[in-house]
C-alpha cells in the first residue's frame, strides 16, 4: 500500500502553524493535522486521493508537557504520548485511571507515538469505511466516503436521516468526561476553552466541534476528581492491539451537601461518547440510582454490528460492566 503524494510541513511555533492553516484555508487548499499520525497514516494509505498538505504538530512546545497545579488541575499537553501518560508519576498519583486507560490502548509501539490529543480526535470507525480502496470498490461510496448512502443503516431503516453511524472509539474520552475535563483550542482568533462533554457531535463525519484553522492545545482536568475515583473497563476480545468493542467508565463521588453521585460514560457503542450522572435520590436506594443510571445511559446509545461482537451482546454488557465496576468503587469508598 502506497499513499498518494502530499506536501509536508512542520511548523516550529504554534503561531506559525495557525497562520499556515489560515493561509491554506484562504487559498482553498486541503490539509490535515498530524500529531502521532497513528490514526491518520493508516487512513491516508487506504484513501485514493491526496490529503493536500500534512501539517505535523510535533514541534509545537505549547502542546507539550504534563503540568500539575496541586489542588487545582492537571493539565495535559495535546502532544503528550500515551506511553508517557501511562507512566507519568503525577498522572499516576492524581488520576491513576487516566494512566491505566492510556496503557490499554493499541500496542506499546503505537503508544510511543500516539498522543492524548489525537486520541480525543480519533476518527470514528465503521466496517464499511475503514477498508482498503479495493474493498470499497465492491460497495458504492457511503456518506463518509462522499457518497449518497449508508451501508450500515440502509435507507429503509434510516428514512431520510443522513447521519453517519461510524462509532466513536477513543478509550480516554469516557474517563476524561467523568473527570469533567475541559479542552483548549487555539486559532488565529485566540484561544477558546470548552467542556469536553460539549465537544463531540453525534455524527461519524463531522465528529466534533474542532473548526477549520483550529488546533487542540491542552486538556485540563480539575482537581480533585470524584472522591472514590473513576474505573475504566475495556471490553475487547484480545488484551492488546484492539480498539474497545465497548468501553465503560464509572465514577463515584459525593454531592456537595451530602449524597452520592454515580457516573458512567461509554465509548465504542455510539457515534460519540456518552456520559451520564445520577445523584442518589433523597429516599431512593443505591440500587435504584445505579439502575436508573444504567437505564438512562443504555437508552442513549445505539450499537451496530461494526466489529467483533454482535450489538445485542454489547447492549447486554453495558449493565454488567457498570455494575461490576460500581461495586468495586463502592467497596473502595
Amino acid at each position: 500500500m502506497r499513499m498518494p503524494p502530499f506536501r509536508f510541513e512542520r511548523p516550529a511555533e504554534l503561531r506559525q502553524a495557525l497562520d499556515l492553516l489560515r493561509e491554506l484555508d484562504g487559498a482553498g487548499n486541503g490539509y490535515v493535522l498530524s500529531a502521532g499520525g497513528t490514526d491518520l497514516v493508516p487512513m491516508m494509505k487506504s484513501q485514493p486521493v491526496s490529503v493536500g498538505s500534512l501539517i505535523s504538530l510535533t514541534k509545537l512546545k505549547a502542546l507539550g508537557g504534563i503540568r500539575l497545579d496541586p489542588g487545582k488541575s492537571l493539565s495535559l499537553g495535546a502532544l503528550v504520548t500515551l506511553g508517557d501518560l501511562s507512566s507519568d508519576a503525577a498522572v499516576r498519583e492524581t488520576f491513576p485511571c487516566i494512566a491505566e486507560t492510556a496503557g490499554k490502548i493499541a500496542t506499546p509501539q503505537i503508544r510511543n507515538r500516539a498522543t492524548v490529543g489525537g486520541n480525543l480526535l480519533v476518527d470514528n470507525r465503521c466496517i464499511y469505511f475503514n477498508q482498503s480502496e479495493q474493498n470499497r470498490l465492491a460497495h458504492t461510496p457511503c456518506f463518509k466516503a462522499g457518497g449518497e448512502t449508508c451501508h450500515l443503516v440502509p435507507k429503509t431503516a434510516r428514512g431520510d436521516d443522513p447521519l453517519c453511524r461510524a462509532r466513536f472509539v477513543s478509550d480516554l474520552a469516557p474517563v476524561l468526561l467523568l473527570l469533567h475535563a475541559t479542552i483548549r483550542i487555539a486559532s488565529t482568533a485566540g484561544e477558546r476553552s470548552l467542556p469536553l462533554r460539549d465537544f463531540h457531535l453525534p455524527d461519524g463525519i463531522s465528529r466534533n466541534r474542532l473548526g477549520r484553522g483550529e488546533i487542540l492545545t491542552r486538556i485540563d482536568v480539575p482537581l480533585p476528581g470524584p472522591s472514590a475515583g473513576v474505573l475504566y473497563e475495556k471490553l475487547r476480545i484480545r488484551n492488546a492491539i484492539d480498539f474497545p468493542s465497548l468501553g465503560v467508565a464509572v465514577s463515584l463521588g459525593r454531592i456537595p451537601g451530602g449524597g452520592t453521585r454515580f457516573g458512567a460514560a461509554l465509548t465504542g457503542v455510539h457515534t460519540r461518547p456518552v456520559v451520564m450522572q445520577v445523584d442518589e435520590a433523597a429516599r431512593g436506594s443505591r440500587e435504584e440510582s445505579v439502575d436508573s443510571l444504567i437505564a438512562g445511559i443504555s437508552r442513549a446509545v445505539t450499537p451496530f454490528r461494526q466489529g467483533f461482537f454482535p450489538p445485542d451482546y454489547l447492549r447486554k454488557m453495558i449493565p454488567v460492566l457498570i455494575r461490576r465496576n460500581m461495586e468495586k468503587l463502592l467497596r473502595k469508598a
Binding site: Q131, A138, A240
Partner: peptide, 18 residues
C-alpha cells in the same frame, strides 16, 4: 456481496501474546 469485511490483522482476530 461476498467481500471480506475483516481483511486485516487488526480486524481478523488472532491470539495476542496475552
Amino acid at each position: 456481496l461476498g467481500v471480506v469485511q475483516n481483511a486485516s490483522f487488526l480486524e481478523y482476530k488472532m491470539l495476542s501474546p496475552f
